[in-house]
């Protein structure tokens, strides 16, 4: 099935769903925010690296928004997104310069360790971060306009869709570029890459920075959607959740992480109203995907191509 009409149809369906069920606006905005972060995780998975710490960049983006509003009086939504993106990118490059030296379990555990350090800092520095109570995020302005909460939520939903489309196009172009193909090549043969004159760590650092940038943008959207930031955003289980979203949706293309995030948020929302054991439903869904859809949920609609990663 051609991808462009499919993506366009999916976006129209998203918008139509919010007209039919207005409560979906919040759920889907949050799903896109987490989908952006999961897309970042999927980028690293393409290079054979699993990060169990990427929620830290989600939290960095969220707290950057909260700090910018509280401490610097910046309220414009576009300025907040830009600031959070830059801070997440810089954090990603700094942490990435250290962690891309490692592979496999060491890479995963280092990311986890650094994210837990951030979690502790956010929890303990009460005077700065609000501790475990977190920080409130007010309703930002839009190009100088003050919107009521409902109007801003609607604006944010469409802004999240725009961010998803832009991120999708950018990451798609990256995957098709020499740098993106080199990232896939890291997965199978680092020695050959080095013998082609390609610095493997440089390739991985770009991927890590990009993944942190996406997670940070996801974080700022989440902060503005929820109106509150908490240290739990950096907790390791949230990082595991991002990996789960990426694998559940599928990492062979751009749409997978967003499909996975929407699926999980919807299951969470709908199942939580019925049972406390909603995690069981999510677990069963994951088992189903692992056994029957090795390409993830996106495998339902996207044909497998040569060179696709599972």
């Amino acid at each position: 099935m051609p991808l462009l009409p499919l993506a366009t149809g999916a976006i129209i369906a998203l918008v139509a769903a919010t007209f039919a069920f207005p409560w979906l606006e919040f759920v889907l905005t949050l799903a896109i925010a987490k989908g952006l972060a999961a897309l970042g995780v999927a980028i690293l998975l393409r290079g054979g690296l699993i990060s169990i710490g990427h929620a830290m960049f989600f939290a960095i983006g969220a707290y950057a928004t909260a700090f910018a509003m509280r401490d610097f009086g910046i309220t414009d939504v576009f300025a907040l997104i830009l600031i959070s993106a830059i801070i997440s990118l810089v954090a990603g490059l700094l942490i990435g310069a250290f962690v891309v030296r490692y592979r496999a379990i060491f890479f995963a555990m280092l990311n986890l360790a650094i994210s837990m350090v951030l979690f502790s800092l956010l929890s303990k520095f009460y005077g700065v971060t609000g501790g475990t109570d977190g920080l409130r995020v007010g309703t930002p302005t839009v190009l100088g306009m003050v919107l009521e909460a409902k109007g801003f939520a609607t604006f944010l939903f469409y802004a999240a869709i725009a961010a998803m489309v832009l991120a999708g196009l950018a990451v798609n172009a990256y995957f098709k570029s020499p740098l993106g193909e080199a990232l896939s090549a890291v997965h199978t043969n680092e020695i050959r890459l080095e013998y082609l004159g390609i610095p493997v760590r440089g390739v991985l650092l770009v991927a890590y920075g990009l993944s942190a940038l996406l997670a940070g943008i996801g974080g700022t959207f989440a902060a503005m959607t929820i109106g509150h930031v908490l240290p739990d955003m950096a907790y390791w289980t949230d990082s595991g959740h991002l990996v789960l979203v990426a694998v559940l949706g599928g990492i062979s293309g751009i749409g997978g992480p967003f499909v996975g995030a929407a699926f999980l948020e919807l299951v969470h929302t709908l199942a939580a109203g019925v049972t406390d054991a909603w995690n069981m439903i999510v677990g069963a869904a994951l088992l189903g995907v692992i056994f029957f859809l090795p390409k993830g949920l996106i495998g339902f609609i996207r044909p497998t191509k040569k060179g696709d990663l599972a």
Binding site: E181, A182, A185, H187, T188, N189, R192, Y195, L196, I198
Partner: peptide, 18 residues
């Protein structure tokens, strides 16, 4: 030493691009 998950053409094009 090849990039096993990629096509032969991609293997070659990556070398040329490098």
């Amino acid at each position: 030493q090849l990039f096993l998950d990629q096509t032969v053409l991609t293997n070659l094009m990556l070398a040329i691009a490098s």
